Amino acid sequence: MTLPFAGLLRETPRMRITRRGTGDEDLLVVLGWGNRVAHEHVAWLLTRLLEAGYRVHAVTIPTNVWNFDDQYLAPLDDYVSERDFDIVLSHSTGGLIAEHLAERHPLRNVFLSPWWGVRTAGRIDPAILAVFERLPTARRLHSPDLDADAIGDLKSPAEAELGPSGLSPAFLGTIRDAQARLGKFDDADVVFYSPTDRVVDPAAIEARAPAANRVRYDGGHEFFASSGRNAVLDDVLAALENGPAAISA
Score class of each variant (00 low, 15 high):
A209K: 07
I175L: 15
D147K: 01
P202G: 02
R176H: 13
R216C: 05
V110T: 07
S92D: 08
G152S: 02
L50P: 03
A43R: 10
D147E: 04
E40P: 00
A74D: 10
A74E: 07
G53M: 12
D234E: 15
R139V: 12
D78H: 12
E222F: 08
L233H: 11
V236D: 06
L49V: 04
D125F: 02
V42Q: 06
V232Y: 01
A148L: 01
E222W: 00
N242F: 11
H221M: 11
E103Q: 14
D86S: 14
V37M: 09
G220Q: 02
N242D: 14
V131M: 06
D235K: 15
F185E: 00
D69T: 10
V232I: 13
F85I: 07
D70Y: 10
R16P: 03
A203N: 13
F192K: 07
G228L: 11
N64M: 05
L96S: 02
P244M: 10
P13E: 01
A204S: 15
R229V: 12
R119C: 07
V110A: 05
R55H: 03
P169N: 04
T18D: 14
V88P: 07
S194N: 08
R20I: 01
E99V: 04
R16D: 13
A43H: 07
D125N: 15
P195R: 06
T2R: 15
N35Y: 00
I87M: 13
R55F: 02
A160Q: 13
Q71L: 07
K184M: 10
L76K: 09
T93S: 12
P106L: 03
Q71E: 13
I97F: 10
R55D: 04
E133V: 14
A74Q: 07
S156T: 13
R119H: 10
N213P: 02
W115E: 00
R119S: 10
T137W: 04
A158N: 08
E25H: 03
R48G: 03
P13Q: 00
E161Y: 04
G183V: 09
G7F: 10
E206Q: 11
